[in-house]
């Protein structure tokens, strides 16, 4: 594919042309923080964001997604995907999207995710501001981001857009792009390397060593009890995680009491009732009753269980859980480094 350059002065017109052609989502300011939202104007787009509150997975796997709707006449799939552009995704979130792409398509191919995914053109962008808890440079460092159609890097005087797919190539028609020079391409590469060197946190060991030692620590009850001692079981670490994809399925009635929907909602394995089964007569079995068991399950998922399937850890170092955790105990870098040092 190609590498092109667009001047800063022409960039707003490019974004405007995309917005006029169809829905465009990108990072926008939410008070002092950022969120992926549908863009109304190019001025809203904040490519200098550090990290968004929620990861971009919400576009493919919404926090509440109707799967089936029903009424007196029958039932039908609720899926209505639309073509859209997702602009400004950092590489760590692209790596997370690669994971959810695989997990929703393997074994039982879930069109409720995949249809939204396949109708989205993803433009990744370089990290201009590094968030306070990021460790993306040291986690799964040998895993390359795949699932994007183009990569946008801010350099002096404009942006380099490197296209990866036909979808990405089609974007060039919307702006005043010209072929990038060797110097511009080299500058973009240097900008992306430099971002990796600015992470405030890092994992001190490699993926395989971590996977082995974390797995071996499974039965160390004292370790997990200590790590989880301040856990509120709120599930924030799950909710903000770009690689978490667990959900609950619930039916709800509309006010007419004959129609309604079957909806999946984000769920989190840290919440108390996640693995609870009813046995009848008021009895139940909770297969992860203790906070320590739930805390451990999350870390096992991130550091070991899925590694073989994903080709790397199920953590991309975005630091959202670290920043979001009320008790500040969720930070994978800190927890893993502690386990490795024990």
């Amino acid at each position: 594919m190609t590498a092109s350059f667009i001047r800063s002065d022409d960039f707003a017109a490019f974004v405007t042309a995309l917005i006029e052609a169809g829905p465009v989502y990108g990072p926008v300011a939410k008070r002092s923080r950022f969120a992926f939202e549908r863009l109304e104007t190019p001025e809203e787009l904040r490519l200098d964001y550090d990290v968004t509150i929620l990861p971009p997975k919400k576009l493919f796997f919404p926090p509440a997604q109707d799967l089936v709707t029903f009424d007196g006449a029958g039932f039908r799939a609720a899926l209505e995907p639309t073509e859209k552009v997702l602009l400004g995704v950092h590489f760590y979130d692209v790596k997370a999207i690669d994971q959810t792409d695989l997990l929703f398509s393997e074994r039982n191919y879930d069109i409720n995710y995949m249809a939204h995914r396949e109708t989205t053109t993803i433009v990744a962008s370089n990290i201009q501001t590094v968030s306070k808890r990021a460790f993306f440079a040291s986690v799964g460092a040998d895993v390359e981001p795949q699932g994007h159609d183009a990569f946008l890097t801010a350099i002096n005087g404009g942006y380099v857009l490197e296209t990866r797919t036909e979808r990405g190539e089609a974007l060039l028609a919307f702006g005043a792009f010209q072929p990038a020079t060797e110097a511009q391409i080299a500058e973009a590469a240097a900008v992306n390397v430099a971002a990796l060197e600015r992470c405030p946190e890092e994992l001190e060991h490699g993926t395989e060593a971590i996977a082995d030692k974390v797995r071996a620590a499974f039965q160390d009850e004292e370790l997990w009890t200590t790590l989880a001692a301040d856990c509120f079981s709120c599930g924030t670490c799950n909710t903000v995680c770009p690689t978490c994809y667990c959900f609950d399925v619930q039916d709800t009635w509309n006010v007419d009491q004959t129609s309604g929907q079957r909806t999946r909602f984000w769920d989190g394995c840290l919440t108390e009732d996640f693995a609870k089964c009813s046995l009848g007569e008021g009895a139940c079995e909770n297969f992860r009753e203790e906070r320590a068991a739930r805390f451990r399950h999350r870390l096992m998922r991130k550091a070991t269980y899925l590694n073989e399937k994903l080709g790397g850890p199920a953590c991309v170092g975005c630091g959202r859980c670290s920043a979001g955790c009320t008790a500040d105990i969720a930070d994978p870098a800190r927890v893993i480094n502690q386990i490795m040092a024990s």
């Binding site: 089936v68 792409d101 879930d110 995949m114 249809a115 699932g147």
Partner: peptide
């Protein structure tokens, strides 16, 4: 992308009978 087929060719696994 990591997938083998196109969504329009696949049945919705959440539709019951």
């Amino acid at each position: 992308m990591n997938h083998q087929c196109h969504w329009t060719d696949v049945e919705n696994i959440f539709l019951p009978r």
